[in-house]
């Protein structure tokens, strides 16, 4: 090796230098590998967090599909030990669910608000993400009337609107084609449960046929 001859005036210090350089090399190389490792780990972490809701074996919509079908209002089973539909369900609630599939047409939810019991509504995507929620206080003239549609369906509906009259219903554009409406009704006393169940059952969910697609 030629370089050895050039710098080998003092063999001991040369060896020390060589050791220093290779040590630094080793350090830099490992640092690079460590950075690569952290990069891969970070990437996998972020991707997996975002992918989990999409990859979930059974998202909320497909789990609910086992109980009901789009355009039909169904009650969820009452929360009892061993029979909970979902974890941390409030045992005091009566829950109704209504699936929508906007490919089949907009969904109309209508309910008469009777009495002063608590009713809440949440409008959710396939994975259960809430895009709108409200209580019975949003009722006008004792009625809740909601239309869930795609932006395109909304345009079609608006084109048919009477210009002089404001629309009576609440119109919500859903971020996804499939999702569900969850209706929560509080049975303030266990003895009220049957009445509250009847109240939720009396609400109406309907897929509207599209006139102009």
């Amino acid at each position: 090796m030629t370089s050895v001859k050039m710098t080998s005036a003092n063999p001991a210090s040369f060896r020390l230098n060589l050791f220093k350089i290779s040590w630094l090399d080793w350090l830099l190389a490992s640092l690079l590998w460590l950075l690569a490792l952290l990069f891969v780990a970070g990437l996998v972490h972020i991707v997996s967090v975002f992918a989990l809701p999409e990859l979930a074996q059974k998202d909320a919509y497909s789990r609910l599909s086992a109980l009901t079908q789009p355009g039909q209002l169904s009650l969820l089973p009452a929360a009892l030990p061993g029979q909970e539909y979902a974890p941390f369900e409030d045992p005091a609630l009566v829950q109704g669910v209504c699936l929508y599939d906007l490919d089949r047409g907009p969904l109309e939810l209508s309910a008469d608000i009777i009495g002063d019991g608590l009713l809440t509504f949440s409008f959710r995507t396939r994975t259960g993400r809430v895009f709108y929620s409200m209580t019975d206080k949003a009722a006008s003239h004792g009625k809740i009337d909601v239309l869930i549609l795609t932006p395109k369906q909304l345009e079609a509906v608006e084109a048919d609107d009477d210009e002089e009259e404001l629309p009576q219903e609440l119109r919500l554009t859903a971020p996804e084609k499939k999702g569900f409406v969850l209706i929560n009704a509080l049975a303030a006393f266990p003895s009220e449960r049957a009445n509250i169940e009847a109240l939720v059952k009396s609400m109406n969910c309907e897929i509207l046929s599209e006139t102009n697609k």
Binding site: K58, A60, R63, A86, P87, F88, E89, T120, F121, S122, F123, R124, G128, V130, Y132, S133, M134, T135, L182, N184
Partner: peptide
């Protein structure tokens, strides 16, 4: 699989 309350609820 938990279903949290909506903010408006």
């Amino acid at each position: 699989g938990a279903i949290p309350l909506g903010t408006g609820e």
